[in-house]
Amino acid sequence: MLEFLILNNIVCHAVEAMLFASIACSVLGVIITQMNISSIGFTMTHAAFAGAAAGIFFGLDGTVAAVLASLTIAVILGPLSEKARMPTDTILGILFGMMMAIAIFFISYMQYLGTGVNTSSLLFGNVVSLYREEIYALALISIAAVLFVLTFFKEITAVIFNKKIAEAAGIRVRPIFYALLFMIAISVSLSLNIIGGLLLYVWLVTPAAIAYQFCSTVRDLFLVAPLVAATVSVTGAWIGLQHSLPVGPLIAVVFSGLFLVAVLLSPKRRVPKGE
């Protein structure tokens, strides 16, 4: 898609993948951070991670297995927390531990068996050997995430503000919430190979947290978070490949550094003179 700008095919694919993954994750990240349900993103990420590891072990396509695993978590999350009569956070904590254990089990076992399968991209991501189909899939999910926010902007805004108030206003909160879970599940699964299961959470949370330091409206958050995410990810991918640096960790470190700077510079935290 961007071959007319970047002649090197590997760099071009890496930049495209990072661009689309960062847009999808950061747009959805605004919703989950504002709803204080970041642990859902965390659990979904590790469900995709576990699904991919198990899928590879059983000879399936890692991405398809990741999508299935994270969708399963998305489907069972609501009913499970209702049936178990426990706080959603506790359920998420248990699921997260379970998913991490499954992922580590299969990765360790494959290493022990010497299957020759390289699982490091599941952990740390890999932007070098990407298939064109993977990039198209990421482009589609990033467009879907943006369309989701544009179509249901007022409903999402109300749900972010307060779920109970949104419901009392006559908004159907549950379909919006499940659509959000569905979008997160697909986005993190498709981004897993590029960013890695251990770092993906950074893309979901940190750009939104950086934008939050400067934005005073929800609309601005949805504009600034993907802009920050895309700028840092694309620049990081380009610089990382030029200098043979690990791209995912490099971008994650830059995100974290930017967050600290944003907190220090945030006009929201400035105390007005005279107070």
Binding site: Q34, K154, E155, T157, A158, F161, I165, A166, A169, G170, I171, Y212, C215, S216, T217, V218, D220, L221, K268, R269
Partner: peptide
Amino acid sequence: PLAPFTVRDVVMMGRYGLL
């Protein structure tokens, strides 16, 4: 206190269900 919602935004939410 840092939530990105103005009074106008919050009042208007009351119309969202009707729309």
